[in-house]
Design a protein around this nucleic acid. Sequence first.
RNA 1: GCGGAUGUGGUGAAAUUGGUAUACACGCUAGACUUAGGAUCUAGUGCUUCACGGCGUGGAGGUUCGAGUCCUCUCAUCCGCACCA
Length: 813
Amino acid sequence: MSYNPKEIENKWQVKWSEQQAFEPKDDKSLEKKYILSMFPFPSGRLHMGHVRNYSIGDAMARYYRKQNYNVLHPIGWDAFGMPAENAAIKNGRHPKEWTYSNIDYMRKELKSLGLSFSETREFATCDELYTKWEQEFIIKMYEEKLLYRESTTVNWCNECQTVLANEQVEEGCCWRCDNEVELKEMPGYYLDIRKYADELLEDLKLLEGKWPSQVLAMQSNWIGKSQGLEFTFKLSDASKEKLGGKFEGFEVFTTRPDTIYGVTYTALAPEHPIVKELIKNELLDADVIEKITAISNMTEVERAKAGKEGFELGITVIHPLTNEEIPVWVANFVLASYGGGAVMSVPTHDERDFEFATQYNLPLKYVIDGGEEGKAYTGDGVLINSDEFNGMKNSEAKSAIIKLFEEKNLGRGTTNYKLRNWGVSRQRYWGAPIPFVHCKSCGLVPEKVENLPIALPEDVEITGEGNPLEKHPTWSNCSCPKCRAEAKRETDTLDTFVQSSWYQFRYATHPDKWNSCGIDKEDVNYWLSVDQYIGGIEHAILHLLYARFFTKALRDIGFIDNLKEPFERLLTQGMVLMDGAKMSKSKGNTVDPDALIEKYGADTARLFTLFAAPPQKELEWNDSAVEGAFRFLKKLYARKSKVTTNELPTIEHSSLSKEEKLARAKVYEALQKSVDVYEKTFAFNTLIASCMEALNALDKQDNGLVWSEGMYIITHLLEPITPHICAELSEELFSSKNLAGKIEVLDEVFEQDTITLAVAVNGKRRAEIEVASSAFKDEIISQAKESVAKWLEGKNVVKEIVVPNKMVNLVVK
RNA sequence: GCGGAUGUGGUGAAAUUGGUAUACACGCUAGACUUAGGAUCUAGUGCUUCACGGCGUGGAGGUUCGAGUCCUCUCAUCCGCACCA
């Protein structure tokens, strides 16, 4: 009978499901492995990226399960989010119905790939039971002051009609719909991730060598720690008066306190309170007010593209050291959200300040020696024009000047981060409701924990205009949990990234406890951290930063014990490409996993995915290479007729022919390689190649015992990659004995009677010799010389190098 | 501009500590079997040369008996961040 993947795969998928073969065991004394592939968004159908992600994770999970580890390999659904609402708008389907029916379909697709997921630990993040516990965490975070509500400038996507977190803005555009993001002032809820900035940065060190360096670098840049001086510029008396006495001055931050004597102007962000005050009281020319307002209404991208623009505000501040009067400007490049929204400008030693100063003819004052006139000098040097600090190296002056500020109580050394707090409010329906109530007398009040979950109303109208929860006639009506007066429920929902920040703990929590707690500490102590996490690089900052933060926050508010990092090791898989471009529906260059499985079977799909490229690299799709993978499995299946015994045979190696010995050596080479591949390098492509080599070598001989041993080991090795065909062959040929436990490597198979050595003259390969493996160095050298006599004529051999088992190099003159 | 990576046949890619560069697969060429083949099998396949040979891991140097691998410089491509004071 020839290879029939459909029949085999169906048989085993049913069998595994019946046997509950992939459920983790409750016994906590067992050694565990937690293998996690990032869970999918239930978009409707699997794509090849999913197939790759889950094939990699499944190979690891199956490998460890076979080594008798207690393996947790769960799957679930990252189920809230915009696309569900878009489907509602487009096709009139309810987001909930759309989501759960997608899940049902995709669950079948996953099953058809033969993935060894736990079935009992599956959940969707839109399950009310999941929402319930998440809301409890949110309330606790509010009580512990990790969550707060404030009104500030936010990123607004008008297409999605919602606020976005900083991390969700890519080059000034919405991560979902690519619309340009606007800045808008509005209230929202924030998680204080900045409180953890330093820990998040420090703990990246724990992940070195375990996470891709690229991801570590990206996170480190994103956190963006910098050290410097923070101080207040006091307003001149006249300016104070002009502002009605409402401001004493404003704070600035600089990483270059050594250049402080070179300050010739200061600049404020258009959103700065002082600027707003000037506009409010019409203390600026009407056309200037108009222009500043125009800047305020620009998107970030527009501002960046616009080039530098600024206006003198007609107020001045006093330099804290020189007491000089310094003009204050407003400038479009000053960010409201960093360093207090104000900068001290030193055009002589900062490129950006220089450009602005040149444009508006502002004065220059050089304070570090070494540059040229008419240019900004950003290098190191000795201070000039800086009073008592003249002659000091600028690297030393940095700390000396900070010290002076601190002594005179003018300012302080401080650390600043680019990282901004995580805005988690979304003005959308399909998300977890933020469990708060607005009461006229009590203000913002968290819902009582016993009332959770605050569930979404089912009867909503989703039009894409405005917030469906806000427009719902009755849902937001409630009573205040504190005073019982009539109150209004919060209609914002949580960012979907909140759900994916703690799902790794939910999987680890035994399903029997899912009703009684969100996270079980003991279960988490046993299963976490995740031994191997696998997913796309696109989450390098977003999800992976949030999940790290959430882990630390949940620890600090008492929901988990002393866990530092959730993901011990991270593998970021490369994209699946077709014709050099990412597969996408709009480009029409997709491969449908269902069709692929229908034509070749899951094993071929999995084999090709792991064979075509190492997992970390991009994978270029190639239809005929898929055929090649299929051909190999057909061949493997056909060779079952060669097997003559149903167990691992004992073979007397020395009595074998050359071909038989070579075949055994190839088989054991693959076995030897497998540990490294499955546990360290994940270069499944090389393991598969070794198995192909082994099968090719077996084909060159016809010893039944050698064949039996070979098939026994090859099906053992490939089982994590192509589980169905291997399970089938193992059952039929070896009563599945080869799929339990380890197989020991036999060193004797690598021993050979003769060795082939390359002979090089002056490093250039000239000949090959065959010597007895017992041969002494002298014998080898004389034989080598003979083989390359032609190149030695008339020359002196000055050095002879023998590399054992490899080559001989003769150095001649 | 800053940060991270990657450059090896026609293609996807291999290559412990520096030790026979191109394993494995695709593609291609030729042949066999076939009514036929997008099936299967066999052989060949880095470039160059009639040949001996020469040249070959982006480029240029260097260290070494020996470099894809180590060092210096350089070029190209990809990814991320980007007026962060």
